[in-house]
Design a protein around this nucleic acid. Sequence first.
RNA 1: GGUGGGAUAUCCAAGUGGCUAAAGGAAGCAGACUGUAAAUCUGUCGGGUUUUACCCUUCAAGCGUUCGAAUCGCUUUCCCACCA
Length: 404
Amino acid sequence: MAHENFSFRKTHECSGGRARCGILTTPHGKIHTPNFVFCGTKGAMKSISTADLRATDAEVMLSNTYHMMLQPGADMVVKNGGLHKMLGWEMPMLTDSGGFQIFSLGHGGVANEIKGRRNFSHHCKRTLLEITEEGASFRSYIDGTKHMLTPEISVQVQRKLGADLILAFDECTPFHSSRDYTARAMERSHRWELRSLDEFAKCNDGSQALYGIVQGGIYEDLRKESANFVSQNDFFGQAIGGSLGGTKEQMHEIVAMVSKFVDCSRPTHLLGIGGIGDIWNGVKNGIDTFDCVHPTRLARHGGALCVPFLNTGGEFININNASFRGDISPIDDNCDCYCCRNFSKSYIHHLFKAREMLGGQLLTVHNVRFMVRLMATIRRSIENETFIDEYRKWTALNFKNCQN
RNA sequence: GGUGGGAUAUCCAAGUGGCUAAAGGAAGCAGACUGUAAAUCUGUCGGGUUUUACCCUUCAAGCGUUCGAAUCGCUUUCCCACCA
């Protein structure tokens, strides 16, 4: 058995739907699913310490192979005793394979391209050099040196980093690639995933479990083929990757479509999705884990997550807005985070206006705790068989938007 | 008292005859953000309307030169520097 120290046990399945609760057991502890994986791409959550992250009851975080490989280097992580010890996070961890960087470094902008907006306003330059059967070559965004990432190298690096859950190396194809390219890239990703499995088998000591990745873009037959491929191979879980379409609505449709094809006995991760309504939609379709930079990035930019059906009428407020200048109430009266328990919107507004780092830190604490509580609310609703009602309540805004 | 240098939109600051409602910053106002090259980026930023267009007011104040002035001349006011 390739993943002997890991297990995924479903504890409750929604009647009449695919939403389910489960416990994903890793050598560093249990993840109660559905759950959210917080992004510490470069070996750090931006603007929050691992101690504060722990205090929010978050259960799992991730780092990225590509970033850690370039800086400080996998061997330096080994010297520090591995990611868990180095970051002071003796809890479950996941590492992304670096496949996403084939996409994000190959195109000027990430969000715009994946959403099909084609608006390259960002200052980013391409640093992806070439994708071949062997792998992908990049120029380091740090010092311009050349680096190669192959399925073997990605698994070896992830082995050194030591996260519990690791991902096969894949190519995340952009929204604007043709069906033909998406199909060929998917097939190559499948060959890469087989090579990832082989490499994983060579060095597997039971401390890690490998996820396959379902590609195929927006095309149903490709998604089906890719899901079948992953199911037929000995991956512990599967991640849904690649382009999910050009709009939120299309993304929801594609998640619903793809999730029907995956092996539902395995844990299923949805890569890169983290909006509130998006998570409800994912869980409804049987997704167990999510990861996304959205909550933490939003926080640094002044966005405070809030319950959409209370007052605000949206998934977040922008604390920079002048309307909060004199608002001495907390962001969320019902939130038990350090930020909401102690500080007013007026104060956080001031911190942002004054460009004090603490503003982003406090909002990060709030947004992380918000996500942790959101996932707990979702789990409870599944266990109580109130999932569909709660789903409707939390996504009413999305329905409204769809109708208009 | 004398000589020289200044006065530009909320602030700082370009501009020295027409392409100027006026570069560039900052502040302000709003938006975006979804496997993080993002504590970032974008838009807006004198007033008004029937807002892809037009009208009004504006470069200290007044008068003048000119077809045309933030830009040239004179006068006044205020600020700065140096000399008495």
